[in-house]
Write a protein that binds this DNA or RNA. Structure first.
Lengths: 112, 112
DNA sequence: ACTTGATACCTATTATAGATAGGTATATGG
DNA sequence: CCATATACCTATCTATAATAGGTATCAAGT
């Protein structure tokens, strides 16, 4: 019984990297942005995103900078070059995999 | 370090249901068929498929019949009507989710 | 006859990730 | 002053795939 659909593996990571490709963002903002850009179809909570951001930073895919903003402190994340490469790789994986499955779901199987 | 790509959640279940939509199949056959129809892009091993088949049967999505074939005993699985409904639901979920993510990956985010 | 590899079934354990459900602190609006 | 939103965090649970075995039968080759 999950709020999100059951095809989530790797998706939060992919979306975080994609969002950060355009501009730096902070965690709380990312949580809201994912829900917004997917029209609530995918909406991982803070309990998913914050640990993920920490892991990605540890892996060197993101750079974190704690910075005061609007009276409070935010942690802004940017993509490293390694993070950009990971985004491309994951996007390729994602595209290849979904294309194949789409094909299996829609097409006649004997033709394969 | 997994053999399969990292977007696997729910995919084996979806593919098993899809394959059984066309005709009855037995476990070992399903393992090979998934690898075949996906061109090895998705290739879950027996350790994934057999427990999954047992679970789906327990849920009433599949019917299992042990039957001798070619000198040995095979367990043939067929979709129940509940299994058909599940296939449709999961296919809808899959399509909705991948369409949205595809859009986010390719499109400009400000347009959303 | 013996051995190897393919067929066909199975499960126990481990690893990974998302889900759940909290907690802390500051700022803002009523 | 209080409630809500903002902004960060983590510990635990759960679901599911990956790993790594095991058993037994059959067919083919030596």
């Amino acid at each position: 019984m999950s709020a999100n659909p059951s095809f989530m593996s790797g998706v939060p990571e992919l979306l975080v990297l994609r969002l950060l490709q355009d501009r730096e963002m902070y965690g709380y903002e990312i949580v809201a942005a994912i829900a917004a850009v997917t029209g609530q179809v995918v909406a991982p909570k803070e309990g998913v995103i914050y640990p993920l951001l920490h892991d990605l930073e540890k892996e060197g895919l993101l750079r974190a900078q704690r910075r005061p903003a609007g009276g409070r402190t935010r942690v802004y994340y940017t993509l490293t070059s390694k993070g950009v490469r990971r985004l491309f790789d994951l996007t390729d994986d994602w595209t290849r995999m979904t294309r194949v499955i789409q094909h299996v779901l829609k097409g006649p199987l004997h033709a394969i």
